[in-house]
Design a protein around this nucleic acid. Structure first.
Lengths: 331, 331
DNA sequence: GTGAAAGCGCTAACAG
DNA sequence: CTGTTAGCGCTTTCAC
């Protein structure tokens, strides 16, 4: 009652109130050591009544485990990295682990600043995420002595990375179109210097064979539009289906097709990639597309970093997580 | 050299290497107390060479300041809260403060879990953000003894909140249209039960007078589309400008107008709200819109929580931060 | 089964 | 100006 309302209750308060020693209180609360069931219950009850919550700083100082992990992302507003962050946090919170979010905005100075801060805080591990899977992480990450996981980014040879399975995603898209009876499938996608674009294009080519045609361009709605202009301004056979490298491209494609009076999906079926709902639900007709399951990817990354931080061993390499097909109206 | 490569250097290592006591090292490094310039430089140099970085847990335990703050958001990383988070983090990192990000997904259980975790970690303050300014924060926030800031959310009477200035944003939109010589300005917006929608509508009405007409609906592209259908299926005068409550609505409006062969901005000028670039840059013509400056709002919230955590006093109440007009092609 | 004592890495009096 | 001393709140041997 003396040091009553300011500051939080400490384990000392609990011990005193329960009439036991500090170490007994600690043991009782944590289930460590040997403790009489009776005293254990009593201590727990009193701790509860007092609203005792252990100081994570003190605990971390001693145990060398902060129960916090850091997420370093190269972008700021990413629609890619943020669902992952949600997945990571969602998994971790149930294990009593909190997440530091650090947006580096692609600035090496900021990256260094954030990284140092994370290390000073004794984080148990770091997840590096990026906006593209072939982005190189900051070199400082390589020589840390805490575990690092790469999610949607390229780690070094002996590291653990999680990527969406772009090839499989492309395959289920194409197979869906083929199952619909389409045989002249065109692929309109983004920049060729993106590994994801190449992986998807390769998988596409493998399924459609020599009839395939890949149009690389930009990751924009505009490119989808102008790609269609290009296709229809030329002579030659026209596609009966289009697999697009992103939902935005697909939106441009759909708008351009509609402008030409081409019916979707009857004349031309369209499949997108990303399942970015603000786009895919708003096209007319709504877009059938591939979902990279980024939240699940975050779950996996979170679980992985948790395991590593506990000293478990993980198979190094890139694990590719399956994408899902979301069928709406366009195919 | 003895306890060489495992574990980090401690201040003890620095002190020993510099041939001074631990406290002198501490003083030298922190610029506290009185220290000879010469020894201070020497200690700093040695600390640098050793790659010494202070343990934030130990420091926080003693100083009762963790230099970490928590951000609690009711959604899963929406497009509104994330730019704010980036702004907060950006400001804080330069002050050596890190950010815990907690997405509650509108689940009270998760909110409590995250809040407790933050308190256990002795965060210096909490920023609560939401997806709409009239969302009530979890009641637990009210009785904390650490400072709380409300960003894009409604705090209690004596708290400090930051909102975008919806009324001013609406005014600059309407004034821009009026400056263009438009006199029959229509307002198509989202759900009336959103305070933001009402604030904007009120400001709009004040400027356009009795000629004004507000159409409340949903925050979707589809609503923009069907609102236009409704307007043009009726007889009566047609608008020469439309102020939309969101970029998505504006996109629907623009598409519907184009479908009717109405020229934008010549026949009808359109202004959106949000400056959500993936939408506003992709409309044809690109959308003139209002930017809520969420990153700046994050900056302000970050600065505010920093100040409060240092014991500074802040004027309670809602501070409304000005929106900006982004002129593109549609008006 | 329980408690006394030591100490995680650091800062903050206070003597010298 | 510098070093000694005493902890922050907690966990963890190790006697009793």
């Amino acid at each position: 009652m003396s040091d009553s309302d300011h500051g939080r209750r400490t384990i000392r308060d609990v011990a005193k109130a329960a009439g036991v020693s500090i170490s007994t209180a600690s043991n009782a609360l944590n289930g460590t050591g040997r403790t009489n069931a009776e005293t254990r219950e009593k201590v727990k009850r009193i701790a509860d009544e007092l609203g005792f919550r252990p100081n994570a700083l003190a605990r971390g100082l001693l145990t060398k485990r902060s129960h916090a992990i850091g997420m370093l992302t190269n972008d700021t507003y990413g629609r890619l990295t943020l669902p992952m962050a949600a997945g990571v946090s969602e998994i971790l919170v149930d294990h009593g682990v909190s997440l530091f979010l650090c947006a580096t905005n692609n600035d090496p100075r900021l990256a260094k600043l954030h990284l140092d801060a994370l290390l000073d805080r004794q984080v148990d591990g770091i997840i590096f995420t990026a906006t593209r899977i072939d982005l190189e992480p900051p070199p400082e990450l390589l020589k840390l002595r805490i575990p690092v996981i790469y999610a949607f980014a390229q780690g070094p040879a002996d590291s653990v990375s999680f990527h969406p399975d772009d090839a499989q995603g492309a395959r289920i898209a194409v197979q869906h179109l083929q199952a619909l009876g389409r045989s002249r499938i065109l692929h309109i996608t983004g920049e060729q210097n993106y590994l994801a674009a190449r992986l998807r294009a390769d998988a596409y080519r493998e399924l459609v064979g020599s009839s395939g045609q890949v149009m690389f361009g930009e990751w924009s709605e505009e490119w989808g539009h102008s790609a269609i202009d290009e296709v229809y301004s030329q002579s030659g056979p026209k596609p009966d289906a289009i697999f697009c490298g992103s939902d935005e491209i697909a939106r441009g494609v759909i708008d351009a097709l509609r402008d030409r009076g081409i019916s979707i999906p009857d004349d031309v079926a369209v499949v997108g990639f990303d399942n970015w709902e603000v786009v895919s639900k708003q096209t007319r007709p709504p877009l059938t597309t591939i979902d990279m399951e980024l939240k699940e990817l975050g779950h996996r990354a979170g679980l992985a970093i948790l395991g590593l931080s506990r000293g478990e061993k993980l198979e190094p390499g890139v694990e590719r997580l399956p994408c899902g097909l979301v069928v709406r109206g366009s195919a």
